[in-house]
Amino acid sequence: MQTKVQFTAETRNLLVALYSRAHDAKSGRPILDDRLAVRAVESIEDYDELKTQLKMRDDDAISLAIRGKEVDRWVQDFLRRHPRSVVLHLGAGLDGRVFRIDPSADVEWYDLDLPEVAQMYRDLFPERDHHHVIGASALDPDWLDAIPSDRPVLVVAEGVLVYFTEQQVRDLVTRITGRFPKGELLFDAYTPFSVKAMNKHWTVKATGHRFVWGLEDPKTLEKWDPRIEHKLEWTFTDSPYVSHMPWTSRIMCKIMNAIPVLRKYNRVMRYTF
């Protein structure tokens, strides 16, 4: 059955990431192999028309799947080391990451996004035990009060912090580190240079949401809270899955890897506290 989901100008960007996961799952060499993403896009009325409006391209879909795979790998690593923990998936959008990871019943998983997005998620994805969908802005301080604070926490924020100001990111991060005894922060970050460049990219223009926050020095967060320590950063060009991209994109990745300012274009950052 198809579901009537109302996408507005503010929520159309959700389709870009959802399409990338579905496109990957239907390819000959899937990276994420997210079958629930396929089911979700096939259940959305007028999806083909929306996809055409956004002018989605295959190489961009593959690149988002590659980044998602690395984030999934780090989430799995955290849960191996902290089997009884809390996962805060901020700006979850229409990402069924909890189903890909399939955590044990000892993990309480929270997907958080704006109320209208949270309702879309409930319409498109099945329910599961120990999985909670919260409709609120990540910048709203009240939602955090409902999260158990007696366990290690993993905060995952893929494709969301770049839309906030630095002060908003700082306030959010320090609220979280001040509530939990220990944990990790996992998010993607663009440099100020790449923020400006991405605001000219088709994926950003199509959604109408401009990038705002750029992170030049990973040590910046350590100045916000002395408990925070930068541990790792991953760049897109390091992934073996670049081989799945068209040859023109593979050449571009080699060029980016050789030029420092381009190599750091988009990184996935990992911090402990």
Rank of each mutant, 00 (worst) to 15 (best):
K182C: 09
K182D: 13
K182M: 11
G183L: 08
G183Q: 08
E184A: 12
E184D: 10
E184F: 13
L185G: 02
L186C: 09
F187H: 13
F187L: 09
D188M: 01
D188I: 01
Y190F: 13
Y190K: 07
T191G: 03
P192I: 05
P192G: 04
F193R: 06
F193E: 00
S194W: 15
S194V: 05
S194F: 15
K196E: 13
A197F: 09
M198H: 10
M198C: 08
N199S: 04
H201N: 08
H201Q: 07
W202C: 00
T203F: 13
T203W: 11
V204R: 13
V204M: 12
V204G: 03
A206L: 10
A206P: 11
A206F: 14
T207V: 00
H209W: 07
H209R: 04
H209N: 11
R210D: 13
R210V: 00
R210T: 02
F211L: 11
F211Q: 05
W213T: 02
G214C: 02
L215S: 06
L215T: 07
E216D: 09
D217S: 03
D217Y: 09
P218D: 01
P218Q: 02
K219H: 14
K219I: 00
T220A: 08
T220W: 08
L221G: 01
K223V: 03
W224Y: 11
P226W: 01
P226H: 10
R227Y: 06
R227H: 13
R227A: 10
R227S: 12
I228W: 02
I228N: 00
I228Q: 00
E229C: 06
E229F: 07
H230T: 02
L232R: 15
L232S: 02
L232Q: 11
E233D: 07
E233L: 04
E233S: 06
W234Q: 05
T235M: 12
F236L: 08
F236Q: 12
F236Y: 15
T237Y: 14
T237C: 11
T237D: 14
S239V: 06
P240H: 12
P240I: 04
V242K: 08
M245E: 15
M245R: 12
P246M: 07
W247S: 02
W247M: 05
W247F: 12
T248V: 14
T248A: 14
S249P: 00
S249C: 04
S249W: 12
S249M: 12
R250L: 01
I251V: 13
I251Q: 02
M252A: 14
M252Q: 12
C253L: 07
C253R: 13
C253S: 14
K254M: 08
M256Q: 15
M256N: 14
N257D: 13
N257W: 09
N257R: 10
A258R: 09
A258F: 10
A258Q: 05
A258W: 10
A258P: 07
P260F: 00
V261D: 00
L262I: 06
L262E: 04
R263V: 00
R263L: 01
K264E: 05
